[in-house]
Design a protein around this nucleic acid. Structure first.
Lengths: 198, 198
DNA sequence: GGAAATAATACGACCGGTTGTCTCATATTG
DNA sequence: CAATATGAGACAACCGGTCGTATTATTTCC
C-alpha cells in the first residue's frame, strides 16, 4: 500500500515554493516567513522537516534540477538518431520558457553559485552534485552526437559539455540584465551550431 | 587648489569595503553595519553620502569595474602589435589573482547579476553599463586582432566579445563551487586559443 | 580683521519590522 | 499509553532607514 503522508505533501509544497522564491529573490533575499506564509505552514513544522534554512536550500537545489534532468533525458531518448538536434530542440524549449517568464529568475543554480557558492559548504556540495548531473547528461548527448558524426571528435565530450554549461550560465546572467533572449540564442548558435560541429 | 575632503575619503573607503564584502557575501547577505564598522564610519554619514543601500550598490558596481577597465586597457596598449596575445596575457593574470584568492568571491558583476540583476532597477542599469564597458573593450581588442590576422573575420568582434564575457562569467561560477581554475583556463583555451583563431 | 549669524555636514541613538532558531504545550498516531 | 508530529509563539539579534542634535564651514556685517 502506498500512503502519502501530510508531511510529505508539506515538504513538497515547501520545496516548490522554495524553488520559486529563491530563484526570484535569492537565498538571503528570501525569508523563511515568506515561504511559510505562501504555503500556510507554521515555522515549527519547517524546522521539523528541514532542520535549518541552509539544509533547506541544499534540498531546494536538488528539487530544482530534477525536472531539467527528466526533460533533457526525454529529448535525448525521443530523438535517438539525432542527438545534436535533440540538444538544440531542448535548449530552444528552455529559451521559450524563459521568454514566457519575461527573463525573470533565470537559473537557480547559477544564481546560487554566485550568491552562496563559496560561503555555504552544504549548498556548495549540493550545487556541485546538481551541476555535475546536468553536465553528465549533456556529455552523454554530445558523445552520442560524436558517434553519429554530427559533432567534432577532436574535443572530448566532457570538455564540450562543461563549456556548454558555463556559456549557458553566463548567457543566463546577461539575459537577466538585458531582458533579452539574444545571449541564449547566441550561445546555442555559436556552440551547438558552429564550434561543436563536425 | 586641489583639496581632498574627508567626505571623499570616506566615500572611497566605503566603496572599497563595499566591493570586498558584497563580492564575498552578496548584496542581501551583507548588512550596512558590517561595512560601516569595517571602515569606522557612522550610519548617518552613510546616508549622507549615498542615500540608500540600493544606490550604494549601484555605485559599488561602477567602482568595482574601474580597475579591470584600466588593466585591460593597459595590456592592449602595451602589446600594440599582438592584440590576441594581450588578451591572453590579461586573462592569465586574472586567473593568477583568482587562484591567489583561493577562488573566493569570483566576479562581483556576475554574482550581482544573478542575485539582484532582475529585482533592482538601479543596480540592473549599473550592471548593464559596467558589463557593456568591459565588453566594448574586449571587442576593441578582438577587432584589432582581426586586423592583425590572428582572429577570424567571419564572426563580428562584438559577438565574439559577448561570447567571451558570458563564457568567462559562467566559468567563474563553476570555479567558485569547484574551487579550481580549470574552468577559467578551459574558457581561454577553447575561445581565444581555438574558436576565435583565424 | 574679527565677531556674529547662517548654512552645511557629521553623527549615533533609535525606529518599526524582520531574521533564523528554538521551546513547549497540544494533537495525532501506532 | 508511549512516541512522535505539529504549530503557535518567544526570542535575541539584526535589518535598512530616520531624525534631532552637535559640530564644523562659510558667509555677513560692523
Amino acid at each position: 500500500m502506498l500512503i502519502i503522508t501530510k508531511k510529505q505533501i508539506n515538504r513538497e509544497n515547501l520545496l516548490n515554493q522554495g524553488v520559486t522564491l529563491l530563484m526570484e529573490q535569492g537565498y538571503h533575499g528570501t525569508g523563511l516567513k515568506e515561504i511559510l506564509d505562501a504555503v500556510q505552514i507554521p515555522k515549527g513544522s519547517f524546522y521539523n522537516y528541514f532542520g535549518s534554512k541552509e539544509n533547506f536550500g541544499a534540498e531546494v537545489i536538488q528539487h530544482y534540477i530534477e525536472p531539467f534532468i527528466k526533460q533533457l533525458t526525454a529529448h535525448l531518448q525521443q530523438s535517438e538518431g539525432d542527438a545534436l538536434g535533440a540538444l538544440q530542440r531542448y535548449f530552444n524549449e528552455g529559451i521559450a520558457e524563459l521568454e514566457k517568464a519575461d527573463f525573470k529568475g533565470g537559473c537557480l543554480l547559477g544564481n546560487l553559485m554566485g550568491e552562496i557558492g563559496d560561503t555555504s559548504d552544504l549548498c556548495q556540495k549540493s550545487l556541485q552534485s546538481a551541476v555535475n548531473r546536468y553536465r553528465d547528461l549533456l556529455q552523454l548527448g554530445l558523445a552520442k552526437a560524436q558517434q553519429q558524426g554530427t559533432v567534432r571528435v577532436d574535443k572530448s565530450a566532457e570538455d564540450m559539455a562543461d563549456l556548454l554549461v558555463n556559456t549557458w550560465q553566463g548567457a543566463l546572467l546577461r539575459m537577466k540584465i538585458e531582458k533579452s533572449s539574444a545571449p541564449l540564442k547566441q550561445c546555442c548558435q555559436d556552440l551547438l551550431g558552429d564550434f561543436f560541429k563536425a
